[in-house]
Amino acid sequence: MTEVFLSLVIGVLYAAGLYLMMCRNIAKFIIGLGLIGHGANLLIFTAAGLSTQRAPIVPEGVTIPVVPIVDPLPQALILTAIVIGFGLTAFVLVLFLSAHEVEGTDDLEKMRSTDQ
């Protein structure tokens, strides 16, 4: 059941994130981006298969884990995704702040001219 429930959670995260990204406001856009980032990470995590087994760390004294462990690969993927997501959000923020300063507005619909 956890998978179904978490899938629902992911859907809500995405829906809220997408809605915020469509608001014509820089700050809301950034928050939406953050929500979608969480949703994406959870998606990978859930899709790879949830379990309550041991963390992927080999105990001291043995060379091969004796008890079953969680799949470590998706964790490695998500770990970098978290950090990159943070870097991306932060960069978008800097970008928007400078755009805001140049354009004098935080209305995303009014920033069209910067494209040209």
Binding site: S7, L8, I10, G11, L13, Y14, A15, L18, A47, G49
Partner: peptide, 17 residues
């Protein structure tokens, strides 16, 4: 639009499982 997107993601997660 947002709810459609969210639904799609939910379904996708379940199927990816």
């Amino acid at each position: 639009v947002a709810i459609l997107g969210g639904l799609a993601m939910t379904l996708m997660t379940l199927m990816a499982n």
